[in-house]
Design a binder for these strands. Sequence first.
RNA 1: GUCCUCGUAGCUCAGUUGGAUAGAGCGUCAGAUUCCUAAUCUGAAGGCCACAGGUUCAAUUCCUGUCGGGGACACCA
Length: 520
Amino acid sequence: MIKYTLEKQLSAAIAIYLDRPDLDARLDVPNNTSYGDYSTNVAFLLAKSLRFAPQKIAEMLCEKLAADPAFNDYLTFTPINGFVNVRLSDRFLWSRLEALFEKRDRFPSHDQSRTLLEYVSANPTGPLHVGHGRWAVLGDVMARILRFSGADITREFYINDAGNQIKNFYRSVDAARAGDPIPEDGYHGDYILELAKSYDDPIQVMLDRQIQTLRRLDVEFDSWYSEKSLHNNGKVSQALSLMKEKGLTYEQDGALWFASSRFGDEKDRVLIKADGNLTYFAVDVAYHVDKIDRGFTRLLNIWGADHHGYVPRVRAALAGLFGDKFDTDQGFHVLIGQLVSLFRNGEPVRMSKRTGEMVSLDEVIDEIGVDATRFFLIQKSADTQLDFDLELASRKSSENPVYYVQYAHARMCSIVEKVGILGPFNNLESLVLLPEERTLLLKALQIYDDIYDTALMLSPHRLVQYLTDLARTFHNFYEACPIMKATGPDKAKRLYLLLQVREVFRLCFGLLGISAPEKM
RNA sequence: GUCCUCGUAGCUCAGUUGGAUAGAGCGUCAGAUUCCUAAUCUGAAGGCCACAGGUUCAAUUCCUGUCGGGGACACCA
């Protein structure tokens, strides 16, 4: 954590100089890196209260920082346009490179919560589509990153194996088995006819198929939680009793209502319908109560955008039952995964399970492969709608950005194979770094900062961004700094740098769940 | 109609407590290989950051409104 460490140290020092104990200076990477490796804008923020021009303050701070023995052997400071710019010495960078894979001070603090991450949770009434694939990869990568950064995390798939959709599904298969037309509001895909050919439980068949598809994508779960089991072991009635005890419910028009509007929802919600049946919501409350009963202190969910209106009522239920403990984003957080729109030759492809007209996740994997599918689905922010042209993706598969990062790794492997791992790698810190070497080295050191940000913001696409940047700096290094032809300490220096960078690549590939090919 | 969300290069999209000259990939054009893999690199063109106001030293970023895409508004799941 190079940036966060520096940020803390510099912030504390500046706070003392200016006698501002609560000062929290932030470091940024300047968009023009000739200014420095990092910069801070504190001078702007304090200009008014200190009654000095930002540039004056920046100059004063740089002077004090430069004289501080805590920094002056490895940092230089330059005031430009009111910013305080910081540059790290080559020697310092090199020492950090050598310590890059030591476990200590990777991350500032360990998250003490027990996290349950629930994702995909598709109805077992059809094959997974690309939207499911997006949430699957999103959840999987999120879990890998959180786990790496020290969190205790459990991955769970909620099986919706009860309720009306399930009845409807059985009706459709039964009709097909009897040779009758499938009900208008039933499921109409070709796979229904296929299911009708055997007498296996269609739900089990579909679930197995979903699991298989997820395995293909290298998406695993620690726990498969059955909705049906909630009913069978009385969890639903327990949850409802609990709500009644707490005075959160009332009866009206023959139904049982939850007063969710008292907790921020826009209206009250029905738990038991007038016909005596439970709503999906009632069962979902029970499910979330059970998560908490199982000892989880942080609930993360990934839901499709079509469920985002559902968030306030679940939050309201948790607030009503458990107070503010789970009311905050820290306790209960929902990542909304926007849908993926598929195109083929520029024409939109519909994705309705009901009409049966859809492209399955399996077909996409068949067309473009696991690595490209994962990379494509994770590289964009989860909350933007994604347009995905299958024809384009398969036709241009060799130009897919995933190959850009993988090729960098293959190039490194090729060099190592040719050159061998020649030591000794000592006394290299005193060598001068070329610009391409330095840029690559600094980028590699920033890996934990980026992982930390990614974990904090729950946005895995940031790591893809980082990896692409790293690949670019490597390709630049490759063009400018030959290793095989280099001699003496230069050769060892570059080789050592490359070996460490290759480990960073492997770390990223592992977190993203894509392969690290040695040859391409 | 109400609420949520998005609108950034020709295309797909990054850009988070508001900072310096707004970026990447693809596509287009012009170059680079006697040299560790050219699935690469260098350069160029390409932008009213949807629009209009507001907040302030500073707005792609925050606020308000308008327009446009998507979604949600059930005693469905």
